[in-house]
Computed example of a mutant assay.
Amino acid sequence: MAKILTITNQKGGVGKTTTCVNLAASLAATKKRVLLVDLDPQGNASMGSGVDKHTLENTVYEVLTDKVKIHEAILKDTPAGYDIIGSNGDLTAAEVELLQIPRREFRLKMALMEVDDEYDYVLIDNPPSLNLLTVNALASSAGVIIPMQCEYYALEGISALIGTIEKINKRLNPNLKIEGILRTMFDPRMSLTKDVSTHLVEYFGDKVYRTVIPRNVRLAEAPSHGLPALLYDKNSRGAVAYLALAGELIRRTKLEEKETSQEA
């Protein structure tokens, strides 16, 4: 059974897509079967995975609106090393069309059920807003990874996101939880960074990943080459950090599975 994780933050520019692409590549490098779902009409996760969004025949838009089955939209053997369902500007039309479809909040969930046994992890990249696409992602997922910068306004934004997650949990997906808080663009030389980081750990405890993602030029350069940082420069600080995050995620998953089996 795949572990489905939404990577989201209603605040833009926090490293959401960077995290989705690089975590997918790092998990794939550990021999995990990974599917990345690009649910952002900008298609940045697709382009950053070496997929030309302009030439896609079938995208997540066609899947959500029942124009094709999910297997027809999955791109295998991508340069990034994991499978992907791509996205482009066509997805902007999906929200309007979804309004006319029954159980519109569960379109992605129903599609992913068809490939549940084919992957270890499904990572969903989202637009930086709360809309019907994001609701579909949250309704499909077991957990939410929240990338955030350690700055004042980020603290305000995360409280709004937590409120959204709680509402989805009560109304659409009782299994949804916060998987982890990821500190991105981390600069330990800044006192504000350290202060906000301390507050996060005090409030969220072990929900905060021990791994931090540093500010790193290679992470910023890699998307323009259509590659995750691990394939662009595997020795870069950014690539090493995302490998560490993948290891931390895998260890958490194994611990959860062990606890679940003991309860059963």
Rank of each mutant, 00 (worst) to 15 (best):
G12F: 07
G12N: 12
G13V: 06
V14E: 07
V14T: 13
G15E: 09
G15S: 10
G15I: 05
K16M: 10
K16N: 14
K16W: 12
T19K: 05
V21D: 13
V21S: 08
N22T: 12
N22P: 09
L23K: 04
L23I: 06
A24W: 11
A24E: 14
A24R: 05
S26W: 05
S26L: 05
L27Y: 02
L27D: 04
L27K: 01
A28Y: 01
K31D: 12
K31V: 01
K32W: 01
R33Q: 10
R33F: 07
V34W: 12
L35R: 03
L36G: 02
L36R: 03
L36C: 06
V37C: 04
V37M: 08
V37L: 06
L39F: 13
D40M: 05
D40N: 13
D40Q: 07
P41C: 06
P41G: 06
Q42F: 12
N44P: 01
N44M: 02
A45Y: 15
A45K: 02
A45T: 13
S46V: 10
M47W: 09
M47C: 09
G50F: 14
G50H: 11
G50E: 11
V51Q: 13
D52L: 03
H54F: 13
H54W: 06
H54K: 11
T55P: 00
T55E: 15
T55I: 13
L56R: 04
L56C: 10
N58A: 07
N58K: 14
V60T: 12
V60H: 08
Y61S: 00
Y61Q: 01
E62R: 03
V63L: 06
V63K: 01
V63W: 13
T65I: 15
T65L: 11
T65R: 01
D66W: 08
K67Q: 15
K67F: 00
V68G: 06
V68A: 03
K69M: 05
I70C: 04
I70H: 06
I70W: 11
H71G: 00
E72P: 00
E72I: 00
I74E: 14
I74H: 08
I74K: 03
K76H: 14
K76D: 05
D77A: 02
D77W: 08
D77V: 01
D77E: 15
D77N: 15
T78E: 06
T78K: 05
P79Y: 11
P79A: 01
P79I: 04
P79T: 02
A80W: 14
A80T: 06
G81T: 07
G81R: 02
G81P: 04
G81F: 07
